[in-house]
Simulated assay, not measured.
Amino acid sequence: MTQQPFTRPGAFDLSALKRPAAPAPTAGGPGRGGPGAGAARGGASGAPTGTSSYVLEVTEENFQAVIEQSMTAPVMLAFYSRTRMPESGQLADDLAALSGEFEGSFLVGLVDIDAAPGIAQAMQVPSIPLVVAVLDGRPAPLLQDALPIEELRATLTQVMQGLAAQGMTARHQPLTGAPAAEETDGEPPADPRYAAAEDALARDDIDGAVAEYQKLVTANPADVEAAAGLAMARVLQRTRGVDPAAARAAADAAPDDVETQTLVADLDLLDGAVDDAFVRVVELVRRSSGDEKNAAREHLLGLFAAVGNDDPRVLKGRQALASALF
C-alpha cells in the first residue's frame, strides 16, 4: 500500500465502532478479550501465538477497553493484514515476541484490519504496516515500515528510555502466564535483579546503590524500575550530609538559583512533601531561561521518575511543567 503521512491528532473518533459487529471468537469473551486473547489463539486472522503475557488481539468489541489501558502505561497497536501484506504480519509477530522482554512497559494490541475494519476506519490508518503508540488515550505514529527485529528492539528501547526519563515508569500487569509467586508475610517476593542495589541501600552505601542501579539501566534502558531506583538513589546521594535548615535559608536568599532550589526540592521529596517539591521546581522552570531552565526541567523529570508514573501527583506535576514550558 502507498505510504501517506499519518496526521490523525488527538483522541480517537470511536463513532464508527458503535454499530454492532460480528463477534470474533475469543478465549475470554468480550471486554478486554479475556486473559491472553491474542497470545493464546491464532484463528482465522492468523494472530501470533505463544508470544508473551502482554499481547492481545484487538477487536471492535474490546478496542475501547484496550485504549483505556493506555492510561496505565503505553499500548502499541500493530495494524496488519497477512493477506494484503505479509510483511505487516511479520512486524506484528516480532512486536508481540519482543513485548515480553520489556516486562509490561507496554501492552501490544494486534489489529487485523481484515477482521476489524472498523478500527482501521476509526484510526484513519493510511497504510500498513503501521504501529501506533497510545499513551493516556492519545495516539502517535511510531512505525510505518517492517523493520528487522533487532532494529525494532532498538526502537522500542529508545522509546521506553525516553518515557522513563520523563518519569513514566508504570507497567501493565501480565494478561497471562504463570501464577504470581506466593507472598511472604504480605510482602511481594524480592526481584533478584535489584538485590545488589537494595543491599547497598541497606548498608547506607548510597554511592554503591547508584552504581548498581546505573549498571542495570545501562544494560537495559527499558527497565523502568531500575530507572526509578536510580532516580531515588540520586536524590539520596545529593542530599547526603546536607543541613536542611541551611539549605532552606540559602534557597530563600536565592529564589532563582537552580542549585539551591533543586536541593530543597530533593529535601521536600524525602520529607514526603512531594507536591511542594514539584511546585518549587515548576515555578523555577517558569522563571528561568536558557541552560538554567533546561537544568531545572531535567531535575524535575528525575523527581518524577523517583516518585513513579502511577502516582497522581506526577501527572499533576507534568501538566504544571507543560504549562511552565509553553
Rank of each mutant, 00 (worst) to 15 (best):
E60G: 13
F79S: 09
E60I: 12
G33E: 08
T83E: 14
E198C: 04
Q64T: 14
G290F: 02
A73E: 08
Q121F: 07
A96D: 03
E187L: 15
A181S: 13
P23R: 06
S70V: 12
D275Q: 11
A146C: 07
M123Y: 12
A146P: 03
T72V: 15
A222D: 02
S70I: 12
L284D: 06
L284G: 05
V285F: 03
A305T: 12
A164E: 02
E103M: 08
D256G: 12
G89W: 05
G177A: 11
F326M: 14
A226W: 00
P312C: 10
L152H: 02
T218P: 00
R280H: 01
V66I: 15
Y54N: 05
M85P: 00
P25W: 08
L147N: 02
P126G: 13
K215F: 03
T239D: 02
T184C: 07
G42C: 13
V66K: 05
K18P: 00
V307M: 07
L147S: 01
A251S: 14
P129T: 10
A24H: 04
P179S: 15
D205V: 07
P30R: 10
F102W: 00
T169C: 10
R32F: 11
T239C: 07
A226V: 04
G241C: 08
P9Y: 08
A65G: 05
A324Q: 11
F12T: 02
A233K: 02
A27F: 06
R203N: 13
D94F: 02
P86H: 11
G177C: 09
A222C: 04
P74F: 10
A253E: 15
Q121Y: 03
V281Y: 03
A226F: 02
A40Q: 11
P126K: 11
M160R: 09
R203Q: 15
Q64V: 10
V224A: 14
T239V: 12
D191H: 04
L175N: 06
T218L: 07
Q3C: 04
G208I: 09
V66N: 08
A196R: 08
A273P: 00
A253N: 13
V235H: 01
E182T: 14
A324S: 11
D256N: 15
D114M: 10
T155G: 03
R203L: 14
V125Y: 07
R248D: 01
D185W: 03
A78D: 14
G162P: 01
G272F: 04
A16H: 08
E103C: 01
V108Q: 04
R248G: 05
A197R: 01
R280E: 00
A305S: 12
P126V: 13
Q319K: 14
V307S: 07
T176A: 15
Q166G: 10
V55K: 08
N294D: 09
A37T: 03
E60H: 06
A200H: 01
A265M: 00
A277Q: 03
A305W: 03
V108N: 04
L216Q: 12
A253V: 09
R238Q: 09
A92N: 13
R280A: 02
G100I: 10
